[in-house]
């Protein structure tokens, strides 16, 4: 699977929310694009990731 352009290995199928938690992302500070589509936060728990997926996670930091 690709995460922000880098290859990562999924040892098993996992939900998007679990993957995000395991990789240190805070669900309320990110935007997620899976295979070109933005995934609403309400669907993070129901989307299942597979090894063929391309995931882009934008993590916002404070300032403005």
């Amino acid at each position: 699977m690709k995460l922000n352009g880098e290859t990562v290995t999924l040892t098993e199928e996992t939900t998007l929310v679990s993957f995000l938690e395991n990789n240190g992302y805070s669900s309320n500070k990110i935007a997620v694009e899976l295979n070109g589509d933005i995934i609403p936060r309400s669907r993070y728990a129901s989307v299942i990731l597979t090894d063929a997926d391309k995931l882009e996670v934008v993590c916002f930091v404070g300032g403005g």
Binding site: N28, K29, A31, I38, P40, F60, G62, G63, G64
Partner: peptide, 15 residues
């Protein structure tokens, strides 16, 4: 300024 507000707005507009 807050990252949570940024995420809320970006996700909201895109959705």
């Amino acid at each position: 300024d807050k990252p949570q507000a940024k995420a809320m707005l970006v996700n909201g507009v895109l959705e």
